[in-house]
Nucleic acid binder design. Structure first.
Lengths: 237, 237
DNA sequence: CGAACGTTTGAGATGACTCAAGCGTTGTGG
DNA sequence: CCACAACGCTTGAGTCATCTCAAACGTTCG
């Protein structure tokens, strides 16, 4: 998200606390009332639905993402939030967000835009789960994550660090972890990409994207320019 | 969505055109720039992703829903929009929405709230596709639709009209239409529900919801009160 | 050093798919 | 108004992708 100098300053002043979180830690639980939102500064976090022990990830967050900005309006979340790796987060009280909203309408537009991107990513995940087979799902996820991390300055387009393990991929792609292993082996043998727990290496980004029917348009990222915090193309309105 | 008298009047004044659409008609195409949003007044509409001929529905809209309010900020959609049945829609120019946003901040909050519900429904669909089997997916979808239609005053909790055919269910649930038939037969034989193209009859709503691991919390509907337009619980902020 | 957990591998089961065909219904044009 | 085409529904047989269960091995962490 591209912020003007003043916006950034005001936004940073609104942060009530910066916290370090340990890996694999539950952070928020569905149904809890919330009075602040979380900005992810470093590390990876996830949002997931857990019903009767059936766990499905609905989002993976990379540095620069607001993890639960939607809680500002919804007040209560319909899902849980957890860290995947160790993480640094900034807490922003909803009361401060309300003040910011009134004083900096352009910033509000940018924040709203980011919740809409979040929804667009949900839709891409729906396509992935509904219409792609196992190999294609993984290829799609890795391609998507690669683009998002490039935009955050955390991937060079071929290699990036990711704190995910095979059971995570299973919960993301609606598969079992045993099957994830077989799919990863296949991607390795096809020389498309190598997934080693904490490091992903994409050998052929274009073929991988093809295999996953991936087109980054829905991320609304201006691939020409990136900035440190994360760089969803800014709304022109 | 609950609107105050003034809000409703101003909102209705913002409508530039009311249109009747024929069934099974494409209305918007991904990538097209948009300068207005669509409010569905009567009938059913869908949003779907089509990549290389693979079609996946990402949303079904019922009367009272804004179909593409997110286009107001995104400007371009990442998916297509179509009618499922004959439909009546109201067009609201984005320029008018912008004026409304400035003059009626509370209305803006309500509109934003409705886009967040939209995202919450996406997440429930992710759970459905990622973690439920065929019978459970259909049970979940029918239970969800029942609650949404009750809230719109279009279901009594046991019967409702729906313009969907079996291939639609297939594209919603990530299954093939042949398999949809077998699942529907099973639901019929289990005396849970009967789906007859244009009429859905739920014989045991509670068991059906159980079967689909369905909990309506994510719809943020106040099930005590309903109103004609649609009645997402209004944000208190 | 042991426990917990992730990874790797195999064998067998099964849910959903594919292909194929007949039937019913709807809409349309002659 | 009838004939036909298009499309949805129903059914069966066979295939295949993914799951389940089980077990061994490696790694990390306390």
């Amino acid at each position: 998200m591209h912020l003007e100098v003043e916006e950034r300053a005001r936004f940073e002043a609104a942060i009530s606390e910066v916290k370090t979180l340990s890996p694999r830690q539950n952070v928020l639980t569905a149904g809890e009332p919330l009075d602040h939102s979380i900005l992810l500064i470093e590390g990876f976090m996830s949002r997931y639905i857990d019903r009767n022990g059936l766990r499905q990830l609905v989002a993976v967050h990379v540095p620069g993402d607001f993890v639960d900005l939607h809680a500002f309006s919804l007040e209560v979340l319909d899902h849980d939030v957890a860290t995947m790796t160790a993480a640094t987060v900034a807490l922003v009280p909803h009361s401060e967000l309300e003040i910011l909203a009134q004083e900096l309408p352009k910033l509000t537009l940018k924040l709203r835009f980011s919740t809409l991107i979040d929804a667009a990513i949900h839709r891409a995940w729906l396509f992935r789960l509904g219409r792609l087979n196992a190999v294609e799902r993984i290829a799609h996820f890795i391609s998507e994550t690669n683009v998002r991390l490039m935009s955050a300055g955390l991937s060079d387009g071929r290699r990036f660090a990711l704190g995910l393990i095979q059971p995570d991929l299973a919960e993301i792609c609606g598969l079992t972890n045993v099957h994830i292993y077989r799919v990863l082996r296949q991607l390795r043998e096809q020389k498309l990409c190598v997934f080693r727990s904490s490091l992903v290496e994409i050998l052929d980004p274009e073929k991988l994207a093809d295999q996953g029917h991936f087109d980054p348009a829905y991320l609304y990222i201006d691939l020409q320019s990136t900035d440190a915090l994360s760089s969803h193309q800014r709304p022109t309105k």
